[in-house]
């Protein structure tokens, strides 16, 4: 199971008119994992997901979905929440969920039964018989999400699932994603909100300018940037800079600099011996946000 790939993509290319919006993307999503596709707006995330699902055909490259070269052959085992949410406004919430399940091969009556249970578990039991047009945007979005998993798919593809949700519903969505992963499903989602990716992803890819710029774990991404040190001396003095790395900058009563290759220990002894002392010392690991900004920024610089 550990070696199985739920999704693979090799050199996917998509052109619109003269522009290559996806320019040779490779992906490999392990089965049973939560995999994030990160990228700035217009990076090609949605187009990549649509190609993986077979909504649009790539101009070049190959992909497999749950082992199938033709994604259509796996469609009953896939759930999909598109970036542009869409439900029939005149449908009742439970009917909308059952309908989405029926499209994926679930019996309509069973879908309706599961819909009621899922809505209750999501705290939306009262809305089961409400028409979609009467629900708030966030509630409708949750209904659509439930519709995309009601048939218990092996692969769930979520395109920007957190956008438009308030913090409470974002938390519910995170819980649902984790629950689906625990059930054994693979979750592939795109986002440009790093906090969610950082909390949820087992692996991630960063796409910018239609190309994959990074692939690995969250820790791998963080490791692309060195850690930062925040040092607060007991007895501050301007001369302290002579004992600190060249990139050290004063920040109020503290100094900030990149963690040296040899670690922090060789620096501490001279500082103590010189009588500056240590009032505070923090080694700050860079976040995914920082890594993302750097990786995407490097691409932007090259492109410029």
């Amino acid at each position: 199971m550990a070696d199985e790939r739920a999704v693979t993509a090799e050199h996917l290319v998509k052109r619109y008119e003269q522009r290559r919006v996806v320019d040779g993307v490779d992906l490999s999503v392990p089965a049973g994992s939560i995999y994030g596709v990160l990228g700035p707006n217009g990076a090609g995330k949605t187009t990549t997901l649509r190609m993986l699902l077979g909504i649009i055909e790539p101009d070049e490259g190959h992909r497999t979905l749950l082992g199938h070269i033709n994604p259509r052959e796996a469609s009953d085992r896939v759930g999909y929440l598109p970036e542009e949410r869409g439900l029939y406004p005149a449908m009742k919430a439970k009917e909308a969920i059952a309908f989405m399940g029926a499209l994926r091969g679930l019996d309509w009556a069973e879908g309706r039964r599961r819909a009621v249970t899922m809505l209750e578990e999501a705290g939306l039991g009262h809305a089961a018989d409400e028409k979609i047009r009467k629900l708030s945007k966030g509630m409708a979005q949750l209904v659509q999400l439930l519709g995309s998993v009601v048939h218990r798919p092996d692969l769930i593809v979520l395109d920007e699932p957190f956008s438009g949700l308030d913090p409470v519903n974002q938390e519910k969505l995170e819980a649902l994603i984790l629950a689906e992963r625990d059930r054994g499903a693979t979750i592939l989602f795109s986002t440009h909100i790093m906090a969610h990716a950082e909390r949820l992803c087992d692996r991630l890819a960063i796409i910018a300018g239609g190309r994959r710029r990074f692939e690995g774990t969250v820790d791998d991404a963080r490791a692309t940037l060195p850690s930062r040190v925040r040092y607060v001396p007991h007895h501050p003095a301007p001369a302290i800079a002579q004992l600190l790395p060249a990139d050290a900058v004063a920040d109020g009563g503290a100094w900030r600099f990149q963690l040296p290759d040899g670690g922090i220990e060789p620096l501490l002894v001279p500082l103590i011996d010189a009588g500056y002392g240590i009032a505070g010392l923090t080694i700050e690991r860079p976040g995914l946000h920082d890594a993302f900004v750097r990786i995407v920024g490097q691409h932007a610089e090259k492109a410029a």
Partner: peptide, 17 residues
């Protein structure tokens, strides 16, 4: 037009030929 206006077409196109 209903599917296009409500964006349901994306859901349908992903699930159904």
């Amino acid at each position: 037009a209903e599917e296009r206006n409500t964006k349901v077409i994306e859901v349908l196109a992903a699930a159904v030929p």
